[in-house]
Structure formats: structure tokens, C-alpha cells
């Protein structure tokens, strides 16, 4: 499954990093603590969070994550979107909350 498939099936907004929409998705990780993601997420996962600052992209890039989903209509800060474009790691958005979007992504990947 690619990030583009996830965007389509879960009706997500694409804020930035469009050139990474063909990245393969292997799973997901949900956390707003950056060290938790740093320590425990794995490459190819989609990270669900409400953090919108640029360090999110530093972590997404260092961990080779597939994409980031921002919950409850959060939008990436300008320099976050900029780095997302540079790295080709999409930042996506949903109006759903963390619980709801996580459940949907889980079903999509493991269903």
C-alpha cells in the first residue's frame, strides 16, 4: 500500500511532500512525544500526531517514515511544509481525532 492509497481511502488532505505519495506504508505509529517516536517508530510507518513544528519532519526523515498525519484539522507550520517538500515525506491532514483516524488506519493496514 502506498501513501497515495491511504490518502484516497481515508480521505486525507495533502499539505506538502507530494513527491513522496508513492512511498510504501508498512504500518503506523501514534505519539505526540518526539523521543517516543524516535525510539520506537520504524521506517515505512505513518506517524499520527498533533505536533506541527519542524522537528516532526526532522524525525520523520531520520526514521524514514512514510508520511505524517496531523489530526483534528491541525496544519503544518510553514517551515514544516517546506522540509516535507524537500524530503519528499508527505504531511497529511484529517479533521478526525487521533482515536478515530488511528482506528481507520489500523483497519486499512491490518484489515
Amino acid at each position: 500500500m502506498t501513501v497515495a492509497d491511504v490518502v484516497k481511502k481515508l480521505d486525507l488532505k495533502v499539505f506538502s511532500g507530494e513527491k513522496g505519495l508513492d512511498r510504501q506504508v508498512t504500518g503506523g505509529y501514534v505519539s505526540d512525544l518526539l523521543s517516543d517516536v524516535m525510539g520506537n517508530a520504524d521506517s515505512g510507518q505513518i506517524w499520527i500526531t498533533l505536533q506541527t513544528h519542524k522537528n516532526v519532519m526532522a524525525i520523520a526523515s531520520l526514521k524514514d517514515l512514510a508520511a505524517v498525519i496531523l489530526v483534528t484539522d491541525h496544519k503544518p507550520e510553514a517551515n514544516t511544509a517546506e522540509q516535507s517538500n524537500e524530503e519528499g515525506i508527505p504531511v497529511l491532514g484529517t479533521s478526525l481525532d487521533t482515536f478515530e483516524i488511528t482506528g481507520k488506519l489500523y483497519d486499512l493496514i491490518n484489515g
Binding site: 505526540d32 512525544l33 518526539l34 523521543s35 525510539g39 505536533q51 513544528h53 522537528n55
Partner: peptide, 16 residues
């Protein structure tokens, strides 16, 4: 508030 400072940094370093 940025999601740092959870007291996981040094343990992460030690683990890795």
C-alpha cells in the same frame, strides 16, 4: 509543549 522533555532522551541513547 513541543513534545520533547519526556525524560526519554538519555534512556534512548543508552538503549541504542
Amino acid at each position: 509543549e513541543m513534545g520533547f522533555g519526556a525524560g526519554m532522551g538519555l534512556p534512548n541513547m543508552k538503549k541504542n
